[in-house]
Design a protein around this nucleic acid. Structure first.
Lengths: 200, 200
DNA sequence: TCAACAATTGACCGATGGGACAATAAAAAG
DNA sequence: CTTTTTATTGTCCCATCGGTCAATTGTTGA
């Protein structure tokens, strides 16, 4: 156990509370007071551990980012083949505790602020770069070098789009549906220009 | 010309101003005062034409929705085959004046509020239903009935995802790239289970 | 010409939010 | 058991925002 310092504990509690409030209230309605209340503390304490509101929500995004990353990394560790690495990324992105409307709503609110917050933009950029890199590591063994980038872009966009759909109309897309959607996409794109490898 | 009534003109000006402010400021920073300033009027006038802030932004979303719809419908009118209908939807969704970061930012901000605004949810639902219906009308002639729904879902998600990418990292995806991405997706999914029709 | 009406403004209000701060409680260090 | 540092609270302040309203300025139509 590393995290013992009280300040680390509080900071974690608070950024999780911030995220929880974001789920319900959106960025416009997410106030320091509500975050404090959700964490069972006073508003003052929030600003004691975070310089200001912006910093708090930046850390909230980092937290969410880390959770998603861990979900993928855990699966990635057990992947033995390129195809399994692809599946690890896909399955990880739709894990049961993650692919849920509230989480999506919060994520969406943060994404909407990206254009006006340099830090959020950076976090987003890192997340996307990692996702892309993970996909490429799987695709390199399955597609021609000229196609991998394109397919990776398509997969990330498709994943994001499915998340968006879940947020906009909860229930309109199930976890299994989403996973199959992405896997079918990969299969279709891979089968396209390499019919020879299909039967190999 | 139909729109002559001053009230209609003002309302249109104001909801466009609202959208413009949304592009720059996001939902949290979009204030009535700024909207009024952007339209060259006073705050009072905004509330004279719209009951409250919420209603204003609901109309802003309707406006944007209508613009996108018109872009697609115009292209749809000249489509003669199922495949052309599909292309009409795709091209329309990435039209040059539309597929731009600011517009995407505003749209994203509105989407982020959908979970907390029944009206916005309705508008979004209508938009999605129309998109789906347009896609299905093209797909019916190209894929088996069991697949059309799935492919339509994939296409809408992919389109949304590409928009999201543009918003999160302007410049990371060009208009042409986006269009090709979606068309390749359709082609790949269509070729998948119907290799016989490829050479037909 | 005048009365009714729509458009528009600016002042005002109550509520709320972010943030600063001093006071207090708790804990750690010595 | 002090002293010093850290945690925590509640209060206060100021800016801002959404929304109301009365007053003013056109505009129109009898």
């Amino acid at each position: 156990m590393k995290l013992k310092r009280l300040s680390d504990i509080r900071r974690k509690e608070l950024r999780q509370a911030a995220f929880a409030v974001l789920e319900r209230e959106g960025i416009a309605g997410a106030t320091l007071e509500k975050v404090a209340a959700h964490a069972g503390a006073s508003k003052g304490i929030v600003l004691h551990y975070f310089r200001n509101k912006q910093e708090l929500f930046e850390h909230a995004m980092r937290e969410a980012n880390a959770v998603l990353r861990d979900a993928v990394v855990a699966r990635l560790r057990q992947a033995r083949s390129p195809m399994e690495r692809l599946d690890a990324v896909i399955d990880g992105n739709f894990e049961e505790h993650l692919f849920l409307p509230p989480l999506c709503h919060a994520w969406l609110s943060l994404c909407a602020e990206v254009p006006r917050d340099e830090k959020l933009a950076r976090i987003q950029k890192v997340l996307h770069a990692r996702m892309r890199s993970n996909l490429l590591s799987g695709l390199r063994g399955l597609a021609s070098p000229g196609e991998t980038g394109d397919i990776a872009l398509g997969v990330t966009a498709l994943i994001d789009g499915l998340w968006l759909r879940l947020g906009l109309e909860p229930g309109s897309v199930s976890r299994e549906q989403a996973i199959r959607q992405v896997k079918d996409f990969v299969a279709a794109r891979l089968a396209m220009r390499q019919p020879a490898t299909v039967g190999a």
